[in-house]
Amino acid sequence: MAGLVHIDLFSSLDGVAQSPGSRAEDPDGDFAYGGWQAPVDDSAVGQRVMAGIRRMDALLLGRRTYDIFAAYWPQYEGPAAEIAERFTAIPKYVASRGTPSLPWANSHRLGADLAAEIAALRERHREVHVVGSIEFARGLVQAGLFDVLNLWVYPFVLGPGKRLFPPDGPAFGLTLLEPPIAGPAGALLLRYGPGPAVTTADMG
């Protein structure tokens, strides 16, 4: 049975997914709200995120997110040590147009044929997770090269910032995989898979 590709993203209510965990994570465009998700302690988020980390057997990352993770997790010592150990132990696949140095243990660069690479990862792994990596995740979603979109939506409106679904499209459908899960701090988990094309009709 082929494995599944999960995309894990934190988003504001108006769709901004930029720099949720740290002020310095992604300041592109003079983004003013870096670290917007970090102060929110939501037990439902923590439990579901940790469950996903324990199940995953590979990471699939964009180059920028890889560089951020590689500079942080291998040296990490603290209450999230289980995450650091898991991320370091499992294979990490990096999408990059260049030929970057990949110093983190078990890191591999993807080839140019993304669809073929994703198919090979599904054969090789049980559960591959894309974490962050907004631009890369956007391309996967638009091409239907994913199985599960785990979208945590927070009750904030942030205005300008990078989005998984940009205002200029394209249009496509998604399929809800399970009822939404609400956390006590107001975060909402929406789990989607690829869906049918968007169609239109008149009400009545």
Score class of each variant (00 low, 15 high):
Ala116Ile: 01
Ala116Gly: 13
Ala116Cys: 06
Glu117His: 05
Glu117Cys: 08
Ile118Asn: 03
Ile118Ser: 05
Ile118Val: 15
Ala119Ser: 12
Ala120Phe: 00
Ala120Leu: 01
Leu121Asp: 02
Leu121Cys: 09
Arg122Ser: 10
Arg122Trp: 07
Arg122Phe: 09
Glu123Ser: 04
Glu123Thr: 04
Glu123Gly: 12
Arg124Cys: 06
Arg124Asp: 11
Arg124Tyr: 08
Arg124Glu: 15
Arg124Ala: 15
His125Glu: 12
His125Phe: 15
His125Gly: 08
His125Gln: 12
His125Thr: 11
Arg126Lys: 15
Arg126Asn: 14
Arg126Val: 15
Glu127Val: 13
Glu127Ala: 14
Glu127Asp: 14
Val128Glu: 09
Val128Ser: 11
His129Cys: 13
His129Gln: 14
Val130Ala: 07
Val130Lys: 03
Val130His: 03
Val130Gly: 05
Val130Ile: 13
Val131Arg: 04
Val131Phe: 14
Gly132His: 06
Gly132Phe: 08
Gly132Met: 09
Ser133Thr: 10
Ser133Gly: 13
Ile134Asn: 01
Ile134Arg: 00
Ile134Leu: 07
Glu135Pro: 00
Glu135Gly: 10
Glu135Val: 07
Glu135Cys: 01
Glu135Tyr: 10
Glu135Ala: 15
Glu135Trp: 04
Glu135Gln: 13
Ala137Asn: 05
Ala137Gln: 04
Ala137Pro: 01
Arg138Cys: 12
Arg138Thr: 09
Arg138Ile: 06
Gly139Asp: 13
Gly139His: 14
Leu140Pro: 03
Val141Glu: 00
Val141Pro: 00
Val141Asp: 01
Val141Met: 09
Gln142His: 14
Ala143Lys: 12
Ala143Asn: 08
Ala143Glu: 14
Gly144Arg: 07
Gly144Asn: 11
Leu145Gln: 11
Leu145Met: 12
Leu145Thr: 11
Leu145Ser: 09
Phe146Arg: 02
Phe146His: 08
Phe146Ile: 10
Asp147Leu: 04
Asp147Lys: 02
Asp147Thr: 05
Asp147Cys: 05
Asp147Val: 01
Val148Leu: 13
Leu149Asn: 02
Leu149Phe: 07
Leu149Ile: 04
Leu149His: 03
Leu149Gly: 03
Leu149Tyr: 08
Leu149Val: 03
Leu149Glu: 02
Leu149Ser: 04
Leu149Asp: 02
Asn150Arg: 07
Asn150His: 13
Asn150Tyr: 11
Asn150Cys: 10
Trp152Asn: 07
Trp152Ile: 06
Val153Arg: 01
Val153Ile: 14
Val153His: 03
Val153Glu: 09
Val153Thr: 13
Tyr154Gln: 11
Pro155Asn: 14
Pro155Thr: 14
Pro155Trp: 15
Val157Cys: 12
Val157Asn: 09
Val157Ser: 09
Val157His: 10
Leu158Asp: 08
Pro160Tyr: 02
Gly161Ala: 05
Gly161Ser: 05
Lys162Glu: 11
Lys162Gly: 04
Lys162Met: 10
Arg163Asn: 03
